[in-house]
Amino acid sequence: MKIGVLVSEGPYTHQAVDSAYKFVTAAIAAGHEVPRVFFYHDGVNVATRLSVPPQDERNIQQNWTALAKEHNVDLVVCIAAAQRRGMLDANEAERQGKDANNIAEGFRISGLGQLIEMGIQTDRLVTFGD
């Protein structure tokens, strides 16, 4: 079965993205396909590669990046929500005249249409938020 996942809260403050990670890992292990995870609202903040959590804590961004690589999961960050919150990839940074970018490997910035498309193309859509 194809399962799409929407993450609506940012890392570390809310458990939502940790729950989503555990869920996606379990879904893939059970033989389901998770073609895409869409990050919206503060969920876009998961994608920053500049996060430096203490060594004895999980690194949320790195866990997702590794998961995406290993299981070919499309991690999409909503562009409108991302721009509000200072999340830019190299292209967007250049286009907006900003001096830095912060999107981690495995994540890509795209439009809300990707969320709708995920709803159309998957059998189930599960939302993790707060």
């Binding site: 919206y40 439009g111 809300l112 249409g113 969320l115 709708i116 498309e117 159309i120």
Partner: peptide, 8 residues
Amino acid sequence: VVLIGAAF
């Protein structure tokens, strides 16, 4: 989301 989704 609703406004974008309307196009689909």
